[in-house]
Every structure is written in C-alpha cells, then in structure tokens.
Design a protein around this nucleic acid. Structure first.
Lengths: 248, 248
DNA sequence: CGCCGCATTGACGTTCGTCAAGTCTAGTGG
DNA sequence: CCACTAGACTTGACGAACGTCAATGCGGCG
C-alpha cells in the first residue's frame, strides 16, 4: 500500500515522521504535552502527501475529510464564483494548516493550489475531533488555529476595505517577510512564489497596478525588485506607508 | 446578585431561559441531542446580558472569556488600527455567535457594538471546551460555527476584492434579507439597523457612494428606499447585478 | 420649534482599471 | 549553441469609477 498513485498527487505512507520529532512541531502543535499525550497526537497524521507545483491539494466542491498541515512548499487558496470571478483568499507556507473552510458543510469551498512542490500531513478531521476530546491542549490548539484564521481574515478585510494600492502592497510584503522570518529565513530577502496576477487577486488590484507599485517602491529605494526576487531595503518606510493615513 | 450594573451593560441572572427551551435553539445548538446531553448543554449559558443601543459588548484589547449568542438585537463588529482606520467586519443578528476572534490570544481583537438594544447569552469559553469534550455533537457544532465564519469571510473578501459598488450593495442586501427570512421576517421588506457610513465601511466604499447606489437602484425600480426602510421590488435583478460580470 | 445627526445630491479630482505595446526570462528544440 | 516561443512582467496613454468636498434636505427628539 505504499507509493500508490492518486488523482493529483502521491500518497506516501511508508516513511512516517512523527509529529513529536517534526521540526515544525512548535508551529503545528500545542506546547507542553506530556509523553503520553504526544503519543496520542502522533496518531493525528494518517499519511503524507506530495503536491506538485501547479496541482491542487483539494478543489471547491470536493468532499471534506481532512485538514492538512504543510510540511514544505507554498500554497494559495482561492474561491471562485459560478460567473468566473475568482479571488485568492490566502497564501500558506510550512507549518500552516489548510482546509478549515470544509468543516462547516463537509465540502471544501475553495481550491488549494501548490505554487511550488509541496508536502502535507493529512490529518483526518474525525481523528482530530476524537483526540482533542482526550487531549485538552490539542482541543484548545484547534480552537486557536481557527480563531487565528478568523483574525487574519479580519486583517485582510481591513486591507481590502480601506487601503490604497501602495498601502496594500506594503502590508503584504511586511506580512510575508515576517512569516518567513519566523521560519528562519531572511527578513530582507525573499522570493515571491506567486505571479503578479495572484498578488493582485489577493490584494484586490490588477496585475498592472501591482507591477507599477513595485516599480514605485523600487524608484523610491524602498525595495529592490528583480522579477520575483525582492530585497527589502527600508522596512520602516514600508511600515510608514501602511500607516500612512493620507488625507484624513 | 441580580440587576447589578456593570460598565456598559446589565447582567441579568435571575430569569434564565434554558437553551433547551429557547426558540433560537436550532440556530445556536446542534440538533438531535439526547435529554441527558441537553441538560449538559443548558449549563453553557452562565448569564444573560443586555446591551443598549450604541454601547459595546466587548472592545478590542479586552480580555476574552466568553462567546456570546445573540438572543435579540443587532450588532456590528469592527476592527480599528492605531492610526484610526477602521473597518466593519460584520453585522450579526439573533442566533449568531460573536467573540470567536478572542480565542487565539485570549484578547478580543475587535469591537462588538449593539446597533439596537440587544440581549446576549454569555457562554464562558472554558465551559464550552469542557462540555464539548463530553458532548461530541456540541464539539462538532463549535467547529462548524468557526468554519462557517471563515467561509463567510471568504465571501466578504471576494466581494471587497473583485466587485464594483453596485454589485457589493446588491450582494449585501440579498445576504441581509436572506438571513432575515431564515428568522421569519419578510423577504422583501427590511429596516437597516446601520448607517450608510457603516454599510460603506463594511463594503469598502464611502457613504456617498452607498447613498448614490441606493438611489440608482431606486431609479431603476429595483428597490424602494425611504431612509432606512428598504423594500426589495426585484430580487432577481439584484441577483443579476451580483453576477453581472461586466466587461470581462 | 429648532437642533442635530443622517442622508441625498452635485461638481470636481484622484486613483486605479483598461488596452496596448514592448521587454525579460526560462525552457525547448533544431 | 542559439533561435524561438510562451508566459510573466513592465510601461505608457487614456478613461471610468469612485472618493472628496460642499451644499442642502429630512426626520426624530428634546
């Protein structure tokens, strides 16, 4: 039963890395578990699954069974309407959880697409519920993960509802680099995994406006932009732009 | 201990209506509970609390202790940045749950303000966690409530990121009237509990644009607008506007 | 009755979207 | 190795949608 090909990705059941040994543990799991609890929590992950760049982990309309913890790689999630409109709702990186949208109706309501080759831990949701009845720290952790997502989306709503193009892009860059830094990457250098169009969709602006705004930042010496390679030269300036509060 | 005045609202502990008898039960609670489970679930609500119009149930920065189920009245939730920007993140009516944002950091990250005199059931969160360890239907229900909020916010992001003014207002009206209808109100008549400015904040547009768009709908015979009294004359037209997909 | 907050409407300006042309880069195949 | 191509990105010119500012209207409440 190992190495079986599935629709869009491969299942890998043989090589299991226990959560208790995983280097992303502090991102995925609650802290301060007893040895006994850790053993229970290791049962959360049923399998691992690799997702090739450009393919999707799940689609809108698919049956929901599991949450996914990203072990490596980079995803976008996006919603689509019947009439073809679509909106990127988030970008996710290692240690983050995707699939929460599926719980309410047992159906996924968005697509999750890998922007680079990725690997995820598959956590069947009924198992999550079962174990979190026994391990209260896990129960609380699950609640926090969901609440964090709600708060994050509040921030996006603020951005979309009240910021102008420069403010949006500045906030976006600062958020990305802050999350990368929390994972041990540089706080000034980053490589964008998404296109200008995907950034624009997330930020509610057109790709041309994204491009122009990058150029503006570059002209002002705030960031160096070489295609998808970004070097943040003046993070303080970006923060000032986000809090600009121009004209009122 | 009854009728004690608190900061911004009154605590009412004497007259307890059990959840099991509450007419909003099917909105707040899971269905199909056993008698024994119902008894446990009735312990969820510690007290009830009235919130006068214009006052707040909780504020950004306050310690989080409880979720609130709205028994009657109408709320808005809004986030504010240091620099004074603010954004309405939602409008909530009877049967809906507010306070989910506070779980992640044990602090509320938004304000909840009553737009009309309201009454809420106070459900201490540690009690929710305790009881949902025993009553799996409640556990699942809590997860669904949070997931539903995430999905709702995806919808708002789509609206803010990709719709134009008329589409936004049409979607807003349809959503409001649909929720009111689910509570037994008319599907054509409604009274707005919020100002044009609050609608605008929620929809990412200025109050003047909200007003103009109402006037446009009125001129087109789609809705009658008399201040805050709205009569939807052609819901199909509103749906067409939402799905307009003009120009691409 | 008169005030005040909310709503409407108009004139004008800014930001961003649209359309179009052109450039850069990576990947492919001769 | 280089030419070629496709996809992504950049840049410019123009226009539409919406924000801004300001005047006016309306309705509820003291």
């Amino acid at each position: 039963m190992t190495g079986v090909a599935e629709n869009r990705s491969m299942i890998k059941e043989s090589i299991k890395v226990a959560c208790s040994n995983c280097n992303l543990r502090e991102l995925c799991l609650p802290v301060g578990l007893s040895a006994k609890e850790l053993i229970r929590v290791d049962e959360l992950v049923a399998t691992r699954r690799t997702v090739k760049r450009g393919t999707s982990l799940f689609h809108n309309g698919e049956k929901f069974t599991s949450l996914y913890a990203i072990r490596s790689g980079f995803f976008k999630t996006s919603v689509t309407t019947e009439d073809g409109r679509d909106q990127v709702t988030g970008f996710q990186m290692a240690g983050e959880i995707i699939g929460l949208d599926g719980i309410v109706n047992d159906l996924h309501t968005c697509d999750a697409t890998a922007l680079e080759d990725a690997e995820v831990c598959v956590m069947p949701f009924d198992r999550i519920e079962e174990i979190s009845r026994e391990v209260t720290a896990l129960q609380h952790h699950v609640h926090k993960v969901m609440s964090r997502e709600i708060v994050r989306e509040h921030g996006v709503m603020l951005l979309l509802g009240s910021m102008r193009a420069e403010e949006r892009l500045a906030a976006f860059l600062l958020n990305l680099v802050q999350r990368l830094q929390a994972r041990g990457f540089s706080k000034t250098e980053l490589i964008l995994r998404m296109t200008r169009e995907e950034i624009g969709s997330y930020l509610g602006m057109k790709l041309e406006t994204v491009s122009r705004t990058f150029s503006k930042f570059s002209d002002d010496g705030i960031v160096e932009v070489k295609q998808r390679q970004i070097n943040i030269r003046d993070a303080e300036a970006l923060k000032r732009i986000v809090n600009s509060q121009i004209s009122h």
